[in-house]
Amino acid sequence: METNEFLGFIIAVIGVVLLGFFGIKLYNFFVDADMKNAQVFVNDLSGKIEFLKDGESNNFALRGMAGWVLVGWNKDVPIAKDDEIIGKDRKPQKCFDKACLCLCEKSITQCQDVGFCREIDRNIDIKSDGFVDYSIAGGSVGPGGGFSLTKGSFSLNCIYFNKNNLKSLFVEKQKTVVNIKFNEGNKYQSDIDYYIKLKGLGCSFTGP
């Protein structure tokens, strides 16, 4: 091998290594902003939980992530196998055998692939509840079959973020469990799409 060829080879190797190194660094900065935000959110929330003392509680205003769902699984919930759907009674494999807090995109069924999870040192209970009162035209119930009424309280064991604005989450840390609650407030006619969305998140839902 001639000196020039050897020099060229060395330069090429150095170039490739450097390109790879800085390419990865740049990738981390510029790509996958959503996952990074999810990671920041979960780390931030779990950090606040860690810093709370047992028996202490606080309302935390956190920046929501539009289209993402906050959910938690207890230690004793079985891990979903490859052919099983993630849900209330099956947690993502990334939680292993631990209790975990996860932020998942669109639905909790996506948590294994598009979500970020973090281990929690005790059981976790996440709940959002509210009241709904709306009517749907063309329904089969009601006088003359003109509309149906949907009215009553509802709750689900996850928290949905529809906007990137602030959400006030009540966090209470007890010896064996962390409770995270969010008040959805009243949902009326203009919130139908949102209410339907809540029903389809894959969380455990009770309500009309």
């Binding site: 920041v40 931030d44 205003a61 956190l62 920046r63 906007k163 990137n164 604005n165 602030l166 959400k167 006030s168």
Partner: peptide
């Protein structure tokens, strides 16, 4: 004031870490 509703009425989108 540090009030979620007040701040949301101004800010539709919030960035940065709280």
């Amino acid at each position: 004031n540090w009030d979620v509703n007040d701040i949301n009425s101004l800010c539709y989108n919030i960035e940065g870490n709280l």
